[in-house]
Deep mutational scan, measured.
Amino acid sequence: VPQRAWTVEQLRSEQLPKKDIIKFLQEHGSDSFLAEHKLLGNIKNVAKTANKDHLVTAYNHLFETKRFK
């Protein structure tokens, strides 16, 4: 089981690129989880459509539901 890579403050910070969060989610989330949160596909394309709040919610949801690969 992966550990949380970032704190809530870090997740919301401008310093953390959306692409980093997407990469983490794609590496650790199950396909059904990723599909549900519309996070499947090319990281660049996902970054265009997903806002930061959406990614933070998905990140927290992944750990709450433990839907890891």
Results as ranks from 00 to 15, higher is better:
residue 24 F to G: 00
residue 24 F to Y: 11
residue 17 P to E: 10
residue 9 E to W: 02
residue 60 N to L: 15
residue 41 G to I: 02
residue 13 S to G: 05
residue 1 V to Q: 13
residue 24 F to P: 00
residue 54 H to V: 10
residue 8 V to S: 14
residue 5 A to V: 14
residue 55 L to I: 08
residue 20 D to R: 13
residue 13 S to A: 05
residue 63 F to L: 03
residue 32 S to D: 12
residue 23 K to H: 09
residue 61 H to S: 15
residue 66 K to A: 10
residue 34 L to H: 01
residue 53 D to M: 07
residue 53 D to W: 08
residue 27 E to R: 08
residue 50 A to D: 03
residue 12 R to W: 15
residue 47 A to Y: 08
residue 17 P to R: 11
residue 22 I to V: 12
residue 55 L to S: 01
residue 62 L to V: 02
residue 48 K to W: 09
residue 41 G to V: 03
residue 33 F to E: 00
residue 40 L to Q: 11
residue 23 K to V: 09
residue 41 G to Q: 04
residue 65 T to K: 10
residue 55 L to D: 00
residue 57 T to V: 14
residue 9 E to F: 03
residue 42 N to D: 14
residue 60 N to T: 11
residue 67 R to E: 14
residue 69 K to P: 07
residue 39 L to G: 00
residue 49 T to E: 12
residue 19 K to T: 14
residue 51 N to I: 08
residue 6 W to K: 00
residue 20 D to Y: 09
residue 25 L to Y: 00
residue 51 N to M: 08
residue 54 H to R: 13
residue 30 S to M: 07
residue 61 H to I: 11
residue 48 K to I: 12
residue 61 H to L: 12
residue 51 N to R: 07
residue 36 E to L: 09
residue 11 L to F: 02
residue 59 Y to L: 03
residue 33 F to C: 01
residue 57 T to P: 03
residue 57 T to Y: 15
residue 58 A to K: 02
residue 66 K to T: 06
residue 4 R to H: 08
residue 30 S to E: 11
residue 19 K to W: 11
residue 45 N to V: 14
residue 10 Q to T: 05
residue 44 K to D: 15
residue 29 G to F: 02
residue 47 A to M: 10
residue 38 K to H: 13
residue 5 A to C: 15
residue 65 T to C: 14
residue 36 E to V: 08
residue 69 K to F: 05
residue 37 H to T: 05
residue 35 A to F: 14
residue 39 L to Q: 00
residue 28 H to L: 05
residue 8 V to G: 07
residue 9 E to R: 02
residue 57 T to S: 11
residue 35 A to Q: 10
residue 47 A to Q: 13
residue 56 V to S: 06
residue 48 K to N: 11
residue 11 L to I: 06
residue 68 F to K: 02
residue 9 E to M: 04
residue 18 K to D: 07
residue 55 L to Q: 00
residue 33 F to S: 00
residue 13 S to C: 05
residue 69 K to L: 05
residue 62 L to N: 00
residue 20 D to V: 14
residue 33 F to G: 00
residue 43 I to F: 07
residue 42 N to C: 14
residue 10 Q to Y: 05
residue 48 K to L: 15
residue 60 N to P: 01
residue 27 E to H: 08
residue 26 Q to N: 04
